[in-house]
């Protein structure tokens, strides 16, 4: 086991939703790792960028500070 502290994480309902979310923020190539088809790990700045892009696009992700 190991613990990763201070990373960004996006969990979507499915793979397609995750891909869409990353595409809206143009962050597809900034994913550090996919833990599952619907779960991506990113740097914190990238996660913030995705949250901002989704909000700007009229979507309402659950944002955990």
């Amino acid at each position: 086991m190991k613990v990763h502290k201070h990373v960004g994480v996006i969990e979507a309902a499915d793979r397609q939703t995750l891909e869409e979310a990353l595409a809206i923020a143009a962050a597809q190539h900034e994913v550090l790792c996919f833990l599952a088809p619907n779960v991506a790990v990113l740097e914190r700045e990238t996660a913030r960028k995705v949250a901002g892009a989704l909000t700007g696009a009229g979507m309402h992700p659950k944002v955990v500070e």
Binding site: H4, G8, A12, R48, A51, V63
Partner: peptide, 16 residues
């Protein structure tokens, strides 16, 4: 729709 994407801006992740 709101429940479809959750973003942790500053997560602590435990990995097995």
């Amino acid at each position: 729709k709101a429940e479809r994407v959750a973003i942790y801006l500053d997560a602590c992740l435990f990995e097995a």
